[in-house]
């Protein structure tokens, strides 16, 4: 089976590398993005199998990204947000707008793996 492509947008390089490392161990191909704007640009050429994105990013927030993906590109690919727990209102908005899942920081890479796997599986069934 062809490996699934993931886009990972996280501006903390250490956390991003750690997540990439763990996701690759799990068999995914991971492309790192430094901020939301880069993700947006990337999406104009290819769509990944899933997106994992921090909410608070310079230029283009995770929420804006959900909006762009669901309402402009009309894409249903899974998107999982990472956020500080205090951003409750934002999270609710993001979920309403069509985000699939979210994880509160500090995040556990193992938990992220489980959630990414679940979303990819759901995608395959439907």
């Amino acid at each position: 089976m062809k490996p699934k492509n993931l886009l990972l947008a996280e501006d903390d390089p250490m956390l991003a590398s750690l997540l990439k490392f763990r996701l690759e161990k799990e068999g995914y191909t991971v492309t790192l993005m430094p901020d939301g704007k880069a993700v947006k640009e990337c999406l104009t050429t290819t769509l990944p199998d899933a997106i994992i994105s921090d909410v608070m990013m310079p230029y283009f927030s995770g929420i804006e990204l959900v909006d762009y993906l669901r309402n402009e590109l009309n894409s249903k690919i899974p998107i999982i947000l990472i956020s500080t727990a205090s951003n409750e209102e934002n999270i609710i908005n993001a979920l309403k707008m069509g985000a699939n899942d979210f994880l509160a920081k500090p995040i556990s890479p193992t938990e992220l793996l489980i959630r990414v796997n679940r979303e990819i599986e759901r995608q395959q069934i439907s």
């Binding site: 501006d11 903390d12 250490m14 956390l15 750690l18 608070m56 310079p58 500080t84 500090p106 995040i107």
Partner: peptide
């Protein structure tokens, strides 16, 4: 504020 936010997770880890 943004800069601090960016390093918080690493510090926690």
């Amino acid at each position: 504020g943004f800069a601090v936010h960016k390093i918080k997770s690493s510090l926690k880890m």
